[in-house]
């Protein structure tokens, strides 16, 4: 039972990495908190559901469509709100409130459009029969979701560390002011990061029916909490930390569900608070100097 909990925890951990990745990228580059992140995940789930229900599209194909469409959706949102937000004195704090407003808009529109009933995609769509991994049996849908998540993490890593615009992005992460002063087109870099962040949230949404259960317009809040826990454990703003945070979160969740299922829902919150109090900068965070 322990081995099963740990293995499935690692598999879920890969998926939770994906859930936190977009949120973390946006925070890392722009120092703003996209509180609507969970609702974008919800939109991704509904996109996958409707593409499957209406035209029978396979979720793997939907995920490509969602990635592209959500990235394109993210760009105008960026230019409408983010530059103005960043000009404000306390943009980090105000961003929480602003994106709460965006969250309300998305949730309201989704409720009006989709109603409040639960939507799901059967797991067998991603492959039949359980898979045997290291002596344990796991649903194929979990493995596929985890594999896609790992692929997405790898692509983001390549983007940040092997591409020119990725280098610029990391420069903005280190210091926005200095990047601005050295002539980097900070807004273009940020807009790209924002679009990628939104697209990653959408991608996480496509696989959420297999990993998180049925989709409803109100699911965003819970997704947010998980995503926050993941990225805070890892270190806000550090994409490598997200992977560590995701895996710790996944394993801890599965252990809780196996041995203390009544209290499993407490986990993200307690883990988040504990990590913040012990290491306010996250497990991979640098020691920050005061003053």
């Amino acid at each position: 039972m322990l081995a099963h909990a740990i293995l499935s925890g690692l598999v879920f951990g890969c998926y939770f990495t994906l859930v936190g990745l977009g949120l973390n990228l946006i925070f890392g580059v722009m120092r703003i908190v996209n509180l609507a992140h969970g609702d974008v995940v919800m939109l991704g789930a509904f996109a996958a559901f409707w593409l499957f229900a209406l035209i029978g599209l396979h979720p793997l194909i939907s995920s490509v469509i969602v990635l592209a469409a959500f990235a394109l959706l993210g760009l105008p949102v960026y230019y409408l709100v983010v530059p103005r937000l960043l000009a404000a004195r306390d943009s980090e704090m105000l961003s929480i409130i602003l994106f709460f407003g965006v969250q309300q808009i998305i949730e309201a529109l989704a409720t009006i459009a989709f109603g409040t009933s639960e939507r799901s995609i059967p797991g067998r769509v991603l492959g039949r029969g359980p898979l045997h991994v290291l002596g344990q049996t796991l649903p194929v849908a979990w493995i596929v979701s985890a594999a896609v998540s790992l692929l997405a993490v790898a692509l983001v890593y390549l983007y940040l560390y092997r591409s020119r615009v990725g280098t610029l992005t990391r420069a903005v992460m280190v210091s926005r002011d200095e990047a601005l002063a050295s002539g980097i087109d900070v807004h273009r870099v940020s807009a790209l990061a924002f679009a990628i962040g939104v697209a990653l949230a959408g991608l996480a949404g496509v696989f959420s029916p297999f990993m998180l259960g049925s989709a409803t317009p109100a699911m965003g809040g819970d997704v947010n909490l998980a995503a926050f826990a993941v990225i805070v454990i890892g270190s806000l703003g550090d994409p490598r930390g997200t992977m560590l945070g995701g895996l710790i979160y996944g394993v801890a969740l599965m252990l809780m569900q196996t041995y203390m299922s009544a209290w499993a829902n407490l986990l993200p919150n307690l883990l988040l608070i504990a990590v913040l109090l012990v290491r306010p900068t996250g497990l991979l965070g640098r020691q920050v100097r005061r003053a």
Binding site: L98, F100, G101, Q103, Q104, I105, I106, E107, A108, I112
Partner: peptide
């Protein structure tokens, strides 16, 4: 909820 969201933004 919709109006409220827009108002907050």
């Amino acid at each position: 909820q919709l109006i409220y969201g827009v108002l907050i933004v």
